[in-house]
Amino acid sequence: MIDNSMTPGMIFLSASLINNIILMQFLGLCSFFGVSTNIKNSASMGLAVTFVAVMAGVVSWAVYHLVLVPFQITFLRTAVFVLTIASLVQLEEMFIKKYVPPLYSAMGIYLPLITTNCAILAVAFLNIDYSLSLLNTVVHSFAVAFGYVIAIVLFAGLREHLVLAPVPKSLRGYPLAFFLASLMSLAFMGFKGLFGL
């Protein structure tokens, strides 16, 4: 369990490796399987997720503590966070389209899909559930996104090699990807209990 008593380094380690958002918490799986066919695309997806996760973490933290708590309407947080994240993704899409067009075309449909990426919403919720300070929120959001990047880039690297492997026809493509993901998840379970986290 992450809380304010931990140092930022500990929070980072815990959120990125030990409680890896994809391989340990099984969130954000759609993009994990969808955009992991080559390392380049998966890395740019990871970049987009990192950007949105940190922004969404900070903004939703601010909205929660500055708007929802004073007005005593914290029960609305799901709806408000979804609204916040959707707006942020719109903003990011415009930004990337304007300044990094190649990245925009590389990410294609997956950029708007970050709106519904459950990993992002999870970051916003976890920051509140762990009642983190603003600094720790930034660290935690970044760490979760970093964990996402680690998982998806590793996975994409493995899948690039699998394309060339003589795999039985019935397992080619997604079936084997599912097996692979489960094995990676098992491997990440090895981090459990590291430093007593």
Binding site: V67, L68, F71, I73
Partner: peptide, 11 residues
């Protein structure tokens, strides 16, 4: 009322 106003306002 708060809920509606604040949510609408945010939107």
């Amino acid at each position: 009322y708060y809920a509606i106003i604040v949510f609408g306002g945010l939107g």
